[in-house]
């Protein structure tokens, strides 16, 4: 019990004593996760709508690959990316190793299949009258895309929430390609790993609590938007 009490005391001390550093890590975590989620939305939603609606040869294979990619091991993604952007690797000249940019790329790779897969499932599950109605509108691709997106809006927000959850809680890939450099690439998850390795469990727990709070606030916002969307339906 003394051990647990000590950890909790350490956690409170950490939150109270590392204000500026904690805020910097928090802001970096949020912007990297938001940037990655935005990237996943930009790439994933159009592809998901297309996959959900367009029938083509090999569609089942593509869907299988997307579904598999939804469960990509983050460490593997991080490792492959590390090799690619390593100074002597094929994209080494980009000089982005151990920068937030490559961390965003890693997280986009992890979140995009989730957004594609869940969007495709939502659009593919639209009832036949909805699909026939959209076809009967005789509008361009952009308007049709807009219609599909608004028709599956609540499910799309769920996809975004799942993608965001995936990237904000992810540690394997960002640790490998970001390097957990203090003041540069350290984010909440890598900081937790760092503190745990040094047996500073109180600090690690405090960081975990902050991470949980970020996830809670973000998901509460997305859930609110989802409910509003359903009510507006």
């Amino acid at each position: 019990m003394d051990f647990l009490a000590e950890i909790l005391r350490d956690a409170l001390d950490y939150v109270g004593g590392s204000g500026a550093e904690l805020v910097a890590v928090l802001i970096r975590t949020i912007w990297i996760a938001l940037a990655a989620t935005l990237g996943a939305i930009i790439i994933g939603v159009p592809l998901g709508v297309g996959l959900g609606r367009v029938r083509f040869r090999g569609r089942t294979l593509v869907m299988t690959l997307v579904n598999t990619a939804m469960a990509l091991p983050p460490v593997l993604v991080g490792l492959v990316l590390l090799v690619l952007v390593w100074p002597t690797g094929p994209f080494g000249n980009l000089d982005i190793l151990f920068t937030p940019i490559v961390m965003v790329i890693a997280q986009v790779l992890l979140a995009t299949p989730i957004v594609i897969g869940l969007t495709a499932a939502a659009v593919g599950a639209l009832p036949a009258p909805a699909v026939e109605f959209v076809a009967s509108l005789q509008v361009g691709v952009v308007t049709r895309f807009r219609v599909y997106v608004t028709e599956v809006w609540p499910q799309l927000l769920a996809a975004v929430a799942t993608g965001f959850g995936r990237v904000i809680a992810e540690v394997g890939a960002v640790l490998l390609v970001g390097g957990n450099i203090a003041g540069e690439t350290r984010v909440l998850t890598t900081a937790i790993v760092q503190e745990t390795r040094q047996a500073r469990f109180g600090a690690a727990l405090a960081l975990g609590g902050v991470l949980l709070l970020v996830a809670l606030v973000t998901n509460a916002t997305l859930t609110w938007l989802q409910v509003k969307g359903e009510q507006r339906g």
Binding site: P129, A130, S136, T150
Partner: peptide, 10 residues
């Protein structure tokens, strides 16, 4: 005009 009606969100 399809047989089954559909109304968009909104």
């Amino acid at each position: 005009l399809p047989q089954h009606t559909w109304m968009l969100r909104g």
